[in-house]
Design a protein around this nucleic acid. Structure first.
Lengths: 157, 157
DNA sequence: CACAATTCAATTGTGCACAACTGAATCACG
DNA sequence: CGTGATTCAGTTGTGCACAATTGAATTGTG
């Protein structure tokens, strides 16, 4: 009893629509909460990493966020223009650019502490549900990444 | 026993990272599969809606996809330039532009039928898991949309 | 040491998301 | 009928994602 192609297509539509919708809805919530801080959502993610690690080369920042220099370079320039970070070439390795928080960037952390609670409240999920959803999403991401590494059809022999 | 603010921030980081990562991993898989069809992922979503409904005004297309004219207008121009759709002003309402498939656009459907099966295989999830995840994501989206409609803190009095 | 391969950040170019606005067509109400 | 509000597509401008390329610095190997 094989599933007709049209049903697969319908199901596929549902899951990609759902993921897209959830992602964009999250973006909208963050946009509203971060407007007061003068940050976009991706900029907020960068600041989260910096608040946790203090100072990092662009490369490491990209590994944490799964972003490349094509995205990070202009973003970091804007954060620097806003006075939140500074960028300077590493003395050890002139290829590397180290990004670190300014005093202003550190100070913004206090105002950002409000954000996560409001996000969690907006989801209407409790901590266990969030944890469970995160685990499913991480498993999904892992499977997708693995599949991306094998360009051939994984239905296989 | 209240949760320290730093823990909320950490958890928040996890959930937004996870959702972001899953969304981007999906994008990468679709990119690979759709390259042969000459479509981007958002263009594929538009084509899915058109394959299902045949012909729609831009407004309706936007409602299905949660996209506005600022996104759809240039995207549809590219699909038209690729010969997959045609756009024409409605006779009844000159404000409205109706989008419909060309023969070439219809024909592409056959080649696209391969895509959903490969996507499902790449996730490594079975149908029930996909259905369950979709339900959770839809519930999340609903909660986030509702929260977005109330700009004040939903923690309430 | 010399030189090829690699690493790193930046740049370029394409495409998407979204806010704000424009302008034309339509509708609602007096 | 007329005029003010609304609807619709399009445009503009900002910012992000990603592929491809560049160029400089570093590393590995003979």
């Amino acid at each position: 009893m094989t599933t007709p192609a049209a049903d697969w297509l319908r199901l596929d539509q549902q899951i990609c629509f759902s993921l897209n919708a959830a992602s964009r809805a999250f973006g909208g919530i963050y946009r509203g909460l971060l407007k007061d801080l003068g940050l976009t959502y991706p900029q907020y993610l960068v600041m989260l990493v910096l608040w946790e690690h203090g100072e990092l080369p662009v490369k490491k920042l990209g590994e944490h966020l799964r972003l490349d220099s094509g995205t990070l370079s202009p973003l970091l320039k804007r954060l620097e223009a806003a006075g939140l970070v500074r960028r300077e070439r590493s003395a050890h390795d002139e290829r590397s650019v180290r990004v670190r928080l300014t005093g202003e960037g550190e100070a913004l952390r206090e105002r950002a502490l409000e954000v996560p609670r409001r996000i969690a409240a907006a989801t209407g999920f409790d901590l266990d549900e969030i944890r469970d959803l995160r685990a499913r999403l991480d498993r999904l991401t892992g499977a997708l990444d693995a599949a991306a590494a094998l360009p051939q059809d994984p239905a296989g022999p």
